[in-house]
Amino acid sequence: MTRLRHRNWQGWWFALPALLMYGVFVLRPLISTVQYSFYDWDGITPATWVGIDNYRRVLSDPALASSIWHAFFLIIFFTLAPVVGGLFVAALLQEIRIRGLATAARTALFLPQIIPGAAAAIAWVWMFSGNGAVNQVLSSIGLDGITRAWLGDFTWALPAVGVIGTWLGLGFCTILLISGIGKIDTAIYEAARLDGAGFLSTFRAVTLPGLRQEIGVCVTVTIIAALATFDIVFMSTQGGPGTSTMVPGVLVYQLGFTESRIGLASALAIVLTALILVVILPIQRFFRAA
């Protein structure tokens, strides 16, 4: 019994550096944010305690409701499209098994992942502009009628921002799913083939069930990216035109850094964190309950 406890404590020593970093860079800011959210504070002069006033204002602000709706809409582009697309591509690469091509495809797909979101957003701003690459491609295939300055269009700006997210997320999901497929016993695929299963039925009966955990990770990570998105929107539209692409992350930044209302910004950040947890926890449970 004593030896066991002794051994437990020894284990903690290995975790100590990580815990220290976690405490300083994750827990401390988190606790500070919770604390600030109960104050009216400009970041400089002494703060005044305002209780739950900040939360009351944040929750009654109509701008917040629409920005949260935008964030949920982005899940289609940040989560649904990359996961479905990633599954398809991963299954396809598993099927073709031509080494050179598979490696090239993997590299090309993963490339967006190593580019910072902010830089990607700038590149996409050029591509989405009035005479940018997107419109050039559309014109070249005879779709002049639908060309527009995509990020300046009240209807299309949000989906256009979403496309940037899809482009960034697809590689991540594909790589994760490919490695997941690699873990599935090839004997099962062989058995399926011997039984005469085609691409689709193999995909449904073998690949999909085998990837449950990887899909869970993809969905979790990308939903968090959608709900907490900041860099792509900030660099591409700043929430415009009007407020048609405003998301909570950009609102937090505006309140905190532009308007120097640290308390209000902290309250909004806490609400956003809580919202993400409420969405993510059931999803985690679903994918874990294999």
Binding site: L20, R28, I31, S32, Q35, Y39, T45, P46, A47
Partner: peptide, 22 residues
């Protein structure tokens, strides 16, 4: 663990923005 909690807790003692006025 204690160290990280202590580091985290130290932030939450007094209201922010005290001191340092000209």
């Amino acid at each position: 663990m204690l160290a990280s909690l202590a580091a985290a807790g130290a932030a939450a003692c007094s209201p922010p923005g005290e001191g340092g006025r000209a």
